[in-house]
Simulated assay, not measured.
Amino acid sequence: MEIGSKVVATAAIKMALTSSRQEETMLKRVLLEQEEVKAVAVDYGGEFITSVGKIVERAVVASKREGVIKDTHADEGAVAGATREAIAQIMPKALGLNVGGKIGIARHQDHVSVAIFLGIGLLHLDEVAIGLGHRAVHD
């Protein structure tokens, strides 16, 4: 089976939905062994508007640190762009509110996907949202 954007996007979503570091580690290993997909997840939280830059930065830094992407402008730009796309999808629900959640990043060859899962706090009425971005990067 050819691994394409659907598999990589699914991997990013699964990483964003993990509930513990142990689950992240296990899923990373399974994705790498079974599908040759490199993946990482990173937590974040805070007031949404002021967190946007931090979310993008955390996604890029975690991706480089875990070897999901190389230390190149093209790879960093792909993750940053996919992260911004995911943020744009959840922005209408999150503007002006506190958020907390996880970013999942996955890559196989030239496919890079970023999924953002977040809880949006409004008093005791919590909302949830998922945003997904994808980019193609050539080695």
Rank of each mutant, 00 (worst) to 15 (best):
residue 1 M to F: 10
residue 2 E to M: 09
residue 3 I to S: 09
residue 3 I to H: 13
residue 4 G to N: 15
residue 4 G to W: 15
residue 4 G to Q: 15
residue 5 S to H: 11
residue 6 K to V: 00
residue 6 K to G: 01
residue 7 V to C: 13
residue 7 V to R: 14
residue 8 V to G: 06
residue 9 A to R: 14
residue 13 I to S: 05
residue 13 I to T: 10
residue 13 I to Y: 06
residue 16 A to L: 04
residue 16 A to E: 02
residue 18 T to I: 07
residue 19 S to E: 15
residue 19 S to C: 10
residue 20 S to H: 14
residue 21 R to G: 04
residue 21 R to W: 08
residue 22 Q to V: 08
residue 23 E to D: 14
residue 24 E to I: 15
residue 24 E to M: 13
residue 24 E to G: 12
residue 25 T to W: 10
residue 27 L to C: 02
residue 28 K to S: 15
residue 28 K to D: 13
residue 30 V to D: 15
residue 33 E to G: 08
residue 35 E to T: 05
residue 35 E to K: 14
residue 36 E to H: 14
residue 39 A to E: 12
residue 41 A to L: 02
residue 42 V to P: 01
residue 43 D to W: 01
residue 43 D to M: 02
residue 44 Y to I: 01
residue 46 G to I: 05
residue 46 G to S: 08
residue 46 G to L: 09
residue 46 G to Q: 09
residue 47 E to M: 06
residue 48 F to N: 02
residue 50 T to V: 10
residue 51 S to G: 12
residue 51 S to Y: 10
residue 52 V to W: 08
residue 52 V to I: 15
residue 53 G to S: 13
residue 54 K to C: 10
residue 54 K to W: 10
residue 54 K to Y: 11
residue 54 K to M: 12
residue 56 V to P: 12
residue 57 E to T: 04
residue 57 E to Y: 07
residue 58 R to E: 07
residue 60 V to P: 06
residue 61 V to P: 01
residue 61 V to K: 06
residue 62 A to C: 00
residue 65 R to W: 00
residue 66 E to Q: 04
residue 66 E to H: 01
residue 68 V to I: 02
residue 68 V to P: 04
residue 68 V to K: 03
residue 69 I to S: 04
residue 70 K to N: 06
residue 70 K to R: 04
residue 71 D to Y: 00
residue 73 H to M: 07
residue 73 H to E: 14
residue 74 A to F: 00
residue 76 E to F: 00
residue 77 G to V: 05
residue 78 A to R: 07
residue 78 A to Q: 03
residue 79 V to T: 13
residue 79 V to G: 14
residue 80 A to H: 13
residue 80 A to Y: 09
residue 82 A to N: 10
residue 82 A to E: 11
residue 84 R to L: 12
residue 84 R to P: 05
residue 85 E to F: 09
residue 88 A to W: 13
residue 89 Q to S: 08
residue 89 Q to V: 09
residue 90 I to Q: 10
residue 90 I to F: 13
residue 92 P to L: 12
residue 92 P to G: 06
residue 94 A to D: 05
residue 94 A to F: 05
residue 96 G to K: 08
residue 97 L to M: 07
residue 99 V to Q: 07
residue 100 G to F: 03
residue 100 G to C: 03
residue 101 G to N: 02
residue 102 K to P: 03
residue 103 I to A: 04
residue 103 I to H: 06
residue 104 G to Q: 02
residue 105 I to S: 11
residue 106 A to Y: 09
residue 106 A to M: 05
residue 106 A to E: 09
residue 107 R to C: 10
residue 107 R to S: 00
residue 108 H to V: 10
residue 110 D to Y: 11
residue 111 H to T: 06
residue 112 V to L: 13
residue 112 V to F: 03
residue 112 V to Q: 03
residue 113 S to W: 07
residue 114 V to I: 00
residue 114 V to W: 02
residue 114 V to Q: 03
residue 116 I to V: 06
residue 116 I to H: 06
residue 116 I to D: 09
residue 117 F to Q: 01
residue 118 L to C: 08
residue 119 G to S: 05
residue 119 G to R: 03
residue 119 G to L: 03
residue 120 I to M: 03
residue 122 L to I: 02
residue 124 H to M: 00
residue 126 D to E: 11
residue 127 E to V: 00
residue 129 A to C: 02
residue 131 G to I: 03
residue 134 H to V: 01
residue 134 H to D: 01
residue 135 R to H: 06
residue 135 R to L: 00
residue 136 A to D: 02
residue 136 A to S: 06
residue 139 D to I: 00
residue 139 D to K: 07
residue 139 D to V: 06
residue 139 D to C: 05
